[in-house]
Nucleic acid binder design. Sequence first.
DNA 1: GATGAATGAGAGTTCATTCAT
DNA 2: TATGAATGAACTCTCATTCAT
Lengths: 196, 196, 196, 196
Amino acid sequence: MAKSAKQGIIIDAALEVFRERGYADARMADIAERAGVSYGLVYHYFGSKEVLFEIIVESWWNELYAMMEREVASSAPTRDKLVGIIEFFLETYGQKPNLMSIFVSEVCRSSVYHTEEGLAQFMKFFGLCEKIMIQGQESGFLSRDVPPHHLTYIFYGAIETFISVMVLGKVPLTRRRQERAMNAILQVFTDGARAR
Amino acid sequence: MAKSAKQGIIIDAALEVFRERGYADARMADIAERAGVSYGLVYHYFGSKEVLFEIIVESWWNELYAMMEREVASSAPTRDKLVGIIEFFLETYGQKPNLMSIFVSEVCRSSVYHTEEGLAQFMKFFGLCEKIMIQGQESGFLSRDVPPHHLTYIFYGAIETFISVMVLGKVPLTRRRQERAMNAILQVFTDGARAR
Amino acid sequence: MAKSAKQGIIIDAALEVFRERGYADARMADIAERAGVSYGLVYHYFGSKEVLFEIIVESWWNELYAMMEREVASSAPTRDKLVGIIEFFLETYGQKPNLMSIFVSEVCRSSVYHTEEGLAQFMKFFGLCEKIMIQGQESGFLSRDVPPHHLTYIFYGAIETFISVMVLGKVPLTRRRQERAMNAILQVFTDGARAR
Amino acid sequence: MAKSAKQGIIIDAALEVFRERGYADARMADIAERAGVSYGLVYHYFGSKEVLFEIIVESWWNELYAMMEREVASSAPTRDKLVGIIEFFLETYGQKPNLMSIFVSEVCRSSVYHTEEGLAQFMKFFGLCEKIMIQGQESGFLSRDVPPHHLTYIFYGAIETFISVMVLGKVPLTRRRQERAMNAILQVFTDGARAR
DNA sequence: GATGAATGAGAGTTCATTCAT
DNA sequence: TATGAATGAACTCTCATTCAT
């Protein structure tokens, strides 16, 4: 239907504008213009700037949760699950750099997202990640010396910083870069940075 | 550089307001009111909202660089340097939670800071961190398998996520929490999360 | 003039919405939704919000004039004519409370209706009322001490206030209330409020 | 102080614009322009269009209540009290035609004022008026045949219609007109319109 | 130094209306 | 006849900033 087409175009335009200017500086007029539609149509479909932003963020969280839940439920070894998570972030950056950039710049910590609900989303994600760490500890892969939520923070922090640096530097993701990032995170997280 | 007392009061008020509402939503009138001065005075001293924000951010970067440069120059073993860096972040969170919160929410990735200059600040910090990693590799403490800038991302990402979680959850920093965070980051970064 | 059923439904919806929200705050979308039709259809039939409102108001004036002209032409005693007029307002309130409410709230004095034409409508009504007052003076029923247009204002003002109070208080019209209102207006208007 | 001066100028401008265009069609830009001040200053002082309007309406109600309470408390004969009330409305029309016009067009019945609070204001006024009617009945001046609230409606309705006609017709109030209106209302209300 | 009245560009949002289907 | 996607002018309100005192 034509309806979804225009909606999709507006969402894409919003992704671009939110990435370029940030939520606060993004103007609805920019988004409309970028989408090639009138002012009012954005409101016709999305009601407000806030709703438009939330729809975008929601879609991100949903993808993220879906992936995490798949990994939690999977019977693969923990190491593969960690690989899956890193891969998800890197591939999303490759395929939807705008979405990833908005996540990193406007959601992760931004005060824009400092609401009860924003916190809850994060906690849900961390909870799922923690489950995987617990699975890893129970399977004997991960050490029990470090609490699983701390493992989560370190693991996730590593990924996020890699992504952030790419976002900030507007670095394109090559196959080679992806592999090196994956190896670095995985190796340090599992075996440490210490020379042997 | 003898700031008048009023200047300090305004800076403190700005720290609070920027933390509570974020840069975009913070109003100069709020800051003036919080400081108990007229808002003409804020302009008298700081010229603009942007300048006021930058002065705050600048002070953060300067403290951070000073610490990093001390560590780089120090002849202590790499492990102690890493401890020093983690300690700096945790202690700053404990003593200046507003500043730390602004750094995490408004500077780290926020589009507010997506300028050439913002990127440069980060790169300078990463550069200093990388030096320490190189020192570690050269001293034989850190493995050469992982490039030093990747080590930087992983190490810093871990710290930042610990801080972020505390900021988001408005968690007070107890001695015990500080120690456990320190141990977790250090242990995983150096020896990995894998069970032995 | 064979209105389609849809037209009637739209008019009824408009009556409700105009009463509930007033002309200025009534949205065409509300009216369409209330009527259960698309808002294109409202335009198809009525062209604009203003026209839709005017059709409603017009219908009121036409009913009012028709009644007034009957009374003017009638050979009944003046007292009966006054009774007829009061009855008309009270019965219309009972049967078409929305219409009456709109008249009282949006037409009587509202700036919405402060046009040359709005004034003319009122003047026409007052003119007809004045004729009856003159008939009353000529028949010897009403005193010649008060000019007929002043009699008109006092008589109509009494009715309008009774109606307004019911509209404002959303008071349902019982038989008993109707009688008491009728008696009060009639008695005071003809014989005065003074004790005898 | 200069402060109050500007505030007064803005209020006066608002009175004019609200009268000319009605609340809904009045634009804040018009009011600012009329007052010869900037856009923002109106907001600086009054916060919103609604507040500005309410301040105006409030001032009217306060004057009205003050007068009514004086009359209720007075030991003058009821007839003089009625004269006082009529005089108040007529004189206010003469001296503050804009205020009176707004009251008649935007407050009396307008849906603008169809709120719980609007109703309450009216009821308070009617209550005070009723007290005077009761005093009149107790002193033997007014008949007990008609309930005092009905007397109120008839008396007030007469005044309001006189005022409304002048407002609608933009009729200036001459001494002579004032006297004739006073006499007409008083005579009909007390002694009736019937010939003797 | 200190105040806060005054400014006005600019943003989000509303909603009557049009028109292709 | 009927729909509702699409338009855009118009409006309220915000808030960084200026400046006379």
